[in-house]
Design a protein around this nucleic acid. Structure first.
Lengths: 203, 203
DNA sequence: GTCTATAGGCTGATAGAC
DNA sequence: GTCTATCAGCCTATAGAC
């Protein structure tokens, strides 16, 4: 029982380090985040990062792998068939919300072409695009006759969601300055608006 | 005349440093880019970065200001009235292409909420959104009756373009791996596809 | 497992020669 | 204007006490 308590404490430490690292890597980026910062936000000693995750790089990999896993699970749930386009948009929004720091970390990876994306990550992202392709293929004949480019449609769904997420802090600051009465929608609200737009575009 | 030649050389040095800095800041990010790297890519000495731009931070500000200026000029050109939605999408694509490193640098700024965006930059981006709002207001009554949320529409245009740009290197790598015969469109081609989609959505 | 102390490397800025 | 040489500061990783 004493052993279990120790393990429990250890798990909490690991979780705290992961949470702090995810937050800081996503907002500041890898190089600009110090092990000291992570340890401080996690409420532990900086040496523990190396102890538990084999250094800053190992922590980064662990965080990304965790986020990829969660997103993959959501994508694997499948779509209900009633409103396929709306379900698709909602699934992507859900996947992005599953770990809030996933999108910024991934964006930073995309922008650094020398660092190759993790194969598992690439596989997950391709799986997402396959969802879009599947929805397009299942559209009724009249609409499918348009033969939309899956790339264009996919980016037209994922792009706005990503930009919405990434821009949220700035948008709120700017909106508050210009006109405090303007509403700042939630991700789900935005996703619904986007879904309506996409349904219109694809019908 | 000798003086003019010296000035010419100086301008070339400054331009080389700006070009190298823009490339590296956009791809690697600020912290991960060393003054030594910039100088090497620019083919000059690292001390010149401090001499000409008052250090790494000053260089960054100069590069961003330059990109904002170019983008603003394109946005100020206005839209021709025949196909307003397509013209809008093309204008955004043109603004992004005007300085290829503008989008990644801006994205990184958006993701770091503690560093406030430059007021001039914010003003330019708000001007972009005003373009979208203007196009929506000018739509024929039947379409305008839909009363689309300008935020949703704006992000639905800018988001895909940004994601397309940022993802280009990775997309080409992945596509080449999976199926070499898949075409990778240019930004202009993608923008046209997106414009068609948006015209469909807004009609 | 957790912490303290420290070593070793790298970075940005600059003084001074040319 | 451009370059060389150098310094002070910060970073990560780790050895060792507890």
């Amino acid at each position: 029982m004493a052993k279990q308590k120790t393990q429990q404490r250890t798990l909490e430490t690991r979780a705290a380090i992961i949470a702090a690292g995810a937050h800081l890597f996503a907002t500041r980026g890898y190089a600009e985040t110090g092990v000291r910062d992570i340890a401080e936000e996690a409420g532990c000693n900086q040496a523990l990062v190396s102890y538990h995750f084999d250094g800053k790089g190992g922590l980064y990999d662990a965080i990304l792998a965790d986020a990829v896993c969660k997103a993959q699970a959501i994508a694997a749930e499948g779509l209900d068939g009633d409103e396929p386009v709306r379900a698709l948009v909602r699934t992507f929004a859900k996947a992005m919300a599953s770990s809030p720091h996933f999108v910024p970390m991934l964006l930073r990876e995309y922008m650094a072409p020398d660092r190759m994306l993790n194969p598992e990550t690439s596989r997950t992202l391709l799986g997402m695009m396959a969802l879009t392709r599947g929805v397009l293929d299942a559209l009724p004949d009249g609409a499918a006759a348009k033969s939309w480019d899956p790339q264009v449609v996919h980016l037209s769904i994922v792009g706005p969601l990503i930009l919405f997420l990434v821009a949220t802090p700035v948008r709120e600051a700017v909106m508050g300055e210009v006109d405090a009465s303007v509403s700042t929608p939630t991700l789900d609200q935005f996703a619904d608006g986007l879904a309506t737009l996409m349904e219109n575009a694809l019908e």
